[in-house]
Design a protein around this nucleic acid. Structure first.
Lengths: 336, 336
DNA sequence: GGTTGACATGCAACCGGTTGCACAGCATAG
DNA sequence: CTATGCTGTGCAACCGGTTGCATGTCAACC
């Protein structure tokens, strides 16, 4: 009722109103069992009357428990991340934690800055697909609990989405369709996922006797995919596996512009299933499990926070090929 | 260098190391002009040696300036929001603010909870497309600075994306193509944007003499769009304007399943330009300006924080139709 | 040469909670 | 009837900074 202007009703005001000591008010909230039921009642009544709400910040300062975690991603707007962010959010919520979100813009330095800015108001940090060096990551991990997503640094708990399995399936799928010459359109060089995917496609191609070339789209974006098309066609390939779905869509758009039909003349495979069946033609891609990764990362972090023990836990999530409509038989070879 | 175990190098440790008082260390960071240059230098050196980082929380407690803002959205994974979130993030960063992200899952109650949880550790809150009642919003606004996006509550600063202009253009566009019977597929009933769009399409249809019906997709999602298709076709319409792009994509997919060609037999218009030209066929839609909205909302909030004055400011961003490939001439009318 | 004022720094209170410890009151055991 | 222990509450220190005020120093001024 009594909507005091701005700011704050404090513990002292409640204490005075209820005729008890400040410490009793505090305990009424944190350890009510220490007080007689009547006292608790009286305090709660006074608090209600004044509209008292415990101050999160003050509590954090004296207990060291902030009730916050931070999640840092390279690009919020990349459709791979929102579902993950959402899942992390939900999971944190279940334990009454708040989530700070950081966007590094694919920039390692920015990532470092954010890490610093968040420090001191979070209990732990989740770094998703970090672009930072192993050394810096290890340094930060020394200062506070850290969980990685899609990055493998020794001694730090992590959740890895193993796109290798899915990529291998994709390569096999293309080979089955008779493609002999394919391209892998790679993503950020500092991305663990990119390294993993690149290695997987190389390994599978070798095993299957496919000719493989690489084209680089340093940033995973629609535009980068679009711009990669000329280079891709120049390699004489009949199919491409892209670092991610967004890049793949760019490639599709570029092929369309050049009158190359998909999947008739050229096949495209994405990765991360970030767009779902939402596009037409729907994209053949590799499942990502980013939702599980987000959820898992938070619960892993909270677990680490609970038991000081810095468990060097790793969760690995396997992926699989999802065949939709952008892959088909290799075209008959007219000329070289 | 000296990587002290966990937690924190404090101001006191730095003070001892540098041989000065705690207050001087504090001032070396907040008001260096009050100290002699040499002292500042000596303190910074000591701080560097110890690896001192000012504690955000402690500072917030004593100054009341938290350096945090919260952004609450109904669904992070809805592609309309990520670009907005990103823009808000970037803008906040420019002023050294951190961003809490909240996801309400389209649930008013959850929204209320989040508002409560964030209170006490943020200086201000941005509510994007809130599903909460006007009363609750006004109540929260009384307690702390609040900025709304796509919601119009009297006396509260806001950024509105006026999709009305774009929707009117879209209706005109369909009429020009000879469509006489159209459907508006509406979104969440508590959404201000939905009300606005609904009103705009109604108004424009009336003016142009079009027959208009409504189909409801209570939640804006691909599935909801998919499920709305039967109802849409039952209305005998030749074109649909959807509440947003995601719903529109669902409609497109549903039409595809039923063998209805777009734009040959049926035209579809989305709203928000959330997907860009990313899809094939690319979606005719209404621009959203969500990036500007996110940026503007943050700068407006920071401005309100700067000058206590609760400016009842409103920014209105006009929108326009973006014609792509999902609209075309109305089909010849074979039968009724 | 004593006064004045600017400047640099230290002291101590404060922000709003939490928590170890002391203490009073009362019941039970010896 | 005193020793013992438990329970409920208050006191005061502490978390890590910020900030108003007091103090000491030194140069400039009359």
């Amino acid at each position: 009722m009594a909507a005091e202007r701005k700011g704050g009703v404090t513990i002292s005001q409640v204490a005075k109103e209820a005729g008890v000591a400040r410490s009793s008010v505090s305990r009424a909230y944190t350890r009510p069992d220490m007080l007689s039921p009547e006292t608790v009642e009286r305090i709660k009544a006074a608090a209600g009357k004044l509209g008292y709400v415990p101050n999160h910040t003050a509590r954090a300062l004296s207990t060291g428990r902030y009730g916050n975690v931070a999640l840092i991603v390279p690009d919020v707007a990349n459709p791979f991340f929102p579902p993950m962010i959402r899942a992390a959010q939900v999971e944190a919520d279940r334990s009454d934690f708040c989530v700070f979100l950081g966007n590094s813009d694919e920039d390692p330095e920015k990532e470092d800055q954010l890490l610093g800015r968040f420090a001191g108001q979070v209990e732990g940090i989740i770094l998703a697909s970090p672009r930072l060096s192993d050394e810096r990551i290890a340094a930060h991990a020394l200062l506070r609990p850290l969980v990685l997503i899609n990055r493998d640094v020794k001694g730090i708990p992590k959740v890895l989405i193993d796109s290798g399995t899915g990529i291998a399936e994709a390569t096999q799928h293309l080979a089955d369709f008779g493609h002999r010459n394919i391209v892998y359109v790679s993503g950020p060089s500092t991305s663990w996922s990119n390294k993993q995917r690149r290695a997987a496609v190389r390994h599978a191609s070798k095993k299957l006797g496919l000719e493989l070339s690489f084209v680089s789209a340093s940033v995973p974006s629609f535009e980068a995919g679009l711009q990669a098309v000329d280079a891709i066609l120049a390699k004489g390939a009949t199919a491409a596996i892209a670092f991610d779905d967004v890049t793949a869509q760019g490639i599709l758009a570029g092929l369309g512009e050049r009158g190359v039909s998909v999947p008739g003349e050229f096949s495209v495979v994405g990765c991360d299933d970030a767009l779902g069946p939402l596009t037409v033609p729907s994209l053949t891609t590799v499942s990502s499990r980013s939702i599980e990764a987000g959820k898992l990362a938070v619960s892993l972090l909270l677990e680490v926070l609970g038991s000081q023990a810095v468990r060097d836990a790793s969760y690995v999530l396997e992926t699989h090929l999802i065949v939709r409509s952008t892959t088909g038989p290799a075209p008959e070879r007219g000329q070289s």
